[in-house]
Design a protein around this nucleic acid. Structure first.
Lengths: 323, 323
DNA sequence: TGATTCTGGTTTAACGATTAACCAACACGA
DNA sequence: TCGTGTTGGTTAATCGTTAAACCAGAATCA
């Protein structure tokens, strides 16, 4: 492998001069700099980041801790973070924390042991990651006091709730996957706020909740709002087994705008978060923290966007058995 | 931060002794070793991996290059690799290669510049990653000559093809997403082989292919075999719009066994790959390569598993309009 | 002319861990 | 009593890069 030493020896000059030339530190004549650069080019010299990291005390690597890599949103977050990090010459080391908070702490410790300059954490549902020795950016939800940047899950819930209310629905079921999740609680809270005083609302959770849906629909519920697209697909399946169709018998919404939302029939109305912007801000804040700026006092909230498709329609009173 | 120097100074001994004590190199008396370890514990000493990496010439980090991190299979691969790597004290640095081969080469170079000990590559469709300066393990498909380890996509296609043939289907459509993908070509090839001489087969690709399906079904095709679960969901949607149902009018299969396969109605018959085992082998081979063993002459193939659910049923001649 | 300031370098000392080479003291066998 | 080990350390070099401090010669200034 080529090194500064190598180049220095070839040209007959000191390593310091080579280093200065290649990093534009001044102190080197034009001609000498040119010769050095030429030789470096020839040898295909690439600075050794490990040595540089040792000297600088920074590795240029961020750790990314995800609650569960099978989270369907993970790929998009990872990709956006990876892009944003790349743009600043940072690398991303991944670790997952297999479903429990203890493993999450372990993952964080392992990453720190590896010398990461900072930690990006999407916390385990219902867990509170301990403050760490390195700058940490938490991506969760506004209601989490540790949150640094996140989508406006409450606002997103509000958007889709209003969408449904505006369409005339007066009897609505809200379905969450897991009540322990802050994100899902916030989404539900937003929906609730939008429907407040405009519709009768019933909240239910998980597989048990899904099982009650056919009955609720035949009893007059005209819309089911879920906290995730995959949950919505599951709901549609259950309703279909009971002979109920979307949006004919009931309007249905998801959350996150995964590819499957567009592949469903009918295409699913949902809420999209601006993952790129969240990632961009997360990395920007991280860089500030690494540069020594104080942590922001309150979390940033990135707006969400309603994606209205064909799984939601205006309430048809005719479809109501009471008439 | 605590260092060997720190501990050495505290105890009044040389750094070398501390290093020897903490890494069990002998040359240190029982009592001294105990004192050193105790002090290290007190200080919460963690060896600096960067310094160690510089000295050893190895970083203990592998680079993972994925064609597109939004690939729905990514989380599972990443998680399995991450686990397998963890078990050997290796870290995983991610990079994505945004849809084109040039970016793939860039990503590989960036990772190498970062000093990774090896590269795990899931190649871009239809691209041939250049051999690199570090050990490289390619995860693709058996028909790719560079492949190191992969699922038996041909075998998986065969399994699901046979499943369909055994159920009496004699007029089958095979649908791929992108003809340029080796993986998808292999899956199709496997299906073809299973159906050879047992059914009439028609292969089509992409959105145009999907558009022709309703007509093909009304013309007698009784099963549609796709190369991915998401594609299958899309097919089901298109068929539903045309008033055709699964599995009543036509049997349908996916590939990969994503969570959505189970959420669909009916639950989707599909083929599961043993991602854990693929990842385990990939990491094992990588470690061998890093340890200096010669690259295996031929790729390893990990069996796939048929997951038969309710989207496939025996062919019902009654449903055939010709009768 | 003597003091000052550039210019274009060089030397030297780190960063933290590892490791080869060396060394004092003590024990043991011949 | 003299080699020969063994035990338990120490010193010093090294990995590749950076940066502070130093320095010789030329140019500038009063």
């Amino acid at each position: 492998m080529s090194s500064l030493k190598q180049i220095a020896a070839d040209i007959g000059v000191s390593v310091a001069t080579v280093s200065n030339a290649l990093t534009d530190k001044g102190r080197v004549s034009k001609e000498m700099a040119a010769r050095i650069r030429a030789r470096a080019e020839e040898l295909g010299y690439r600075p050794n980041v490990t040595a540089r990291a040792l000297k600088r005390g920074q590795t240029g690597i961020l750790g990314l801790v995800m609650p569960d890599l099978t989270n369907p949103l993970f790929p998009r977050i990872a990709q956006s973070l990876s892009d944003a990090a790349d743009a600043r010459q940072l690398g991303i080391l991944i670790a997952d924390s297999r479903r429990n908070a203890g493993e999450q702490e372990n993952a964080m410790r392992r990453l720190i042991d590896r010398g990461v300059d900072g930690l990006l954490v999407v916390p385990q549902k219902g867990s509170a990651p301990e403050p760490q020795a390195v700058p940490t950016v938490v991506i969760n939800t506004p209601s989490d006091p540790r949150n640094t940047v996140s989508a406006d899950h409450v606002g997103g819930g509000y958007l889709i709730g209003r969408h449904i209310a505006d369409m005339g629905h007066r009897n609505v079921v809200l379905l969450g996957g897991d009540a322990v999740s802050d994100v899902q609680q916030d989404r539900i809270a937003g929906m609730r706020r939008a429907l407040q005083g405009r519709a009768r609302v019933c909240v239910c959770w998980g597989a048990d909740g899904i099982a009650t849906l056919p009955l609720q629909v035949t009893n007059g519920a005209s819309a089911v709002l879920t906290t995730s697209d995959l949950l919505a697909l599951r709901v549609q399946s259950t309703l279909a087994s009971a002979g109920l169709s979307v949006p004919g018998d009931v309007s249905l919404t998801g959350f996150d705008d995964l590819p499957l939302a567009l592949a469903m029939h009918p295409p699913l109305s949902t809420v999209a978060q601006d993952v790129d912007r969240i990632a961009g801000r997360a990395i920007a804040i991280m860089c500030d923290l690494i540069a020594g700026q104080p942590a922001p006092v309150s979390g940033e909230t990135i707006p969400t966007r309603l994606v209205a498709r064909q799984s939601t329609t205006s309430f048809q009173p005719a479809a109501n058995p009471e008439t």
